[in-house]
């Protein structure tokens, strides 16, 4: 491992990291509810309680088992999203502390986000329901559109830092955040976070036009796990973006850990705002756009970054 400024804390801190992630995810859901309440002409305070009310509702609601469902796969897809989101934050530092500054932290995050492909598809395949099945396949189409731009977008900071370790990437941003001089990569990554957490404009796999798509036939705690998993993925994606693009814990006055949290919360809020502002883009529109417009743009961004790095010598 290259010399990084991070302190690796013991694995005993894992539960705290998990609680923190789920708390940030819940805050994101509350903010989303508040924004939605404003749009419906009600005071925002009414909407902020949505996550609590929905959780209570789903805890009380019975689960469903559809006829001839592929039960084991359904459960993997249902329970897996939260697990993957938690695994993502293993490599995300909180200020100067990290659970594990893997030398291939960026590859780790990438691997985790690819697991989401399987999980969402399994959640769609499992219930033996036409709507959910179409939703699952929609996600694969969408994933084909966003995954390559995502991969190249998170490669750019790694090139600039000359390392795949998240700690080195954070250290390389002292003074200047990567988001500032690689804005395309940053924006594409933000879009990808919305996409792997199935949020508008990338929410077609769970769209209203499919009666909820992958969510169509799940109820009770199964539905809660899917919804909480999506929020946790969005929070984990924001946290990772803060580390690799927004300077991690770097910042004046406040302690580094607080900067990490504040930036994550701010980015998550911005993503929630974006998702409420935009309609859903159909995957068949997204696919050519992702390949013919976004992919070349990200590659150009990567080229610029590589040239700058070589130029600096």
């Amino acid at each position: 491992m290259t010399g990084s400024s991070l302190t690796q804390v013991s694995a005993a801190w894992v539960p705290l990291a998990a609680v923190l992630l789920l708390a940030v995810a819940a805050a994101g859901a509350a903010f989303d509810g508040a924004v939605a309440a404003r749009a419906e002409g009600r005071p925002w305070q009414h909407g902020a309680g949505v996550p609590v009310a929905e959780t209570a509702r789903l805890l009380r609601q019975r689960r469903r088992r559809t006829v001839a469902a592929d039960r084991p796969l359904e459960l993997v897809g249902t329970g897996g999203l939260v697990v993957v989101a938690l695994l993502m934050v293993v490599v995300v530092p909180l200020g100067r502390w990290t659970l594990g500054d893997l030398p291939v932290g960026i590859v780790w995050f990438n691997a985790m986000d690819v697991v989401v492909w399987a999980l969402v598809w399994l959640a769609g395949w499992g219930p033996n329901s036409a709507h959910a099945l179409v939703g699952g396949y929609r996600f694969l189409a969408q994933a084909l559109a966003y995954e390559l731009p995502l991969m190249f977008a998170i490669t750019a900071p790694a090139v600039a830092a000359g390392s795949l370790a998240v700690g080195d990437v954070v250290a390389a941003q002292e003074g200047l955040w990567f988001a500032v001089w690689m804005p395309v990569a940053f924006l594409v990554f933000c879009g990808a976070v919305l996409a792997f957490s199935v949020r508008a404009p990338f929410s077609a796999p769970a769209g209203t036009d499919l009666a909820g798509g992958v969510l169509a036939d799940s109820s009770g705690i199964d539905r809660w796990l899917l919804l909480a998993g999506r929020w946790a993925l969005m929070a984990a994606g924001s946290a990772f973006a803060v580390a690799v693009f927004l300077g991690g814990g770097h910042g004046p006055l406040l302690p580094a850990w607080l900067w990490s949290l504040v930036k994550t919360a701010a980015l998550l809020a911005a993503l929630v705002w974006v998702r409420r502002r935009l309609p859903t883009v159909r995957p068949d529109r997204l696919l050519p756009f992702g390949w013919v417009v976004v992919l070349p743009l990200v590659l150009l961004q990567l080229l610029v970054v590589a040239v700058v790095v070589v130029g600096r010598g």
């Binding site: 924004v35 939605a36 749009a39 419906e40 002409g41 508008a200 404009p201 929410s203 077609a204 769209g207 209203t208 036009d209 409420r276 502002r277 935009l278 309609p279 859903t280």
Partner: peptide
């Protein structure tokens, strides 16, 4: 608008 996934505009 609801089918287009734009909940706020539909509201």
């Amino acid at each position: 608008l609801a089918l287009a996934g734009w909940a706020d505009a539909a509201a």
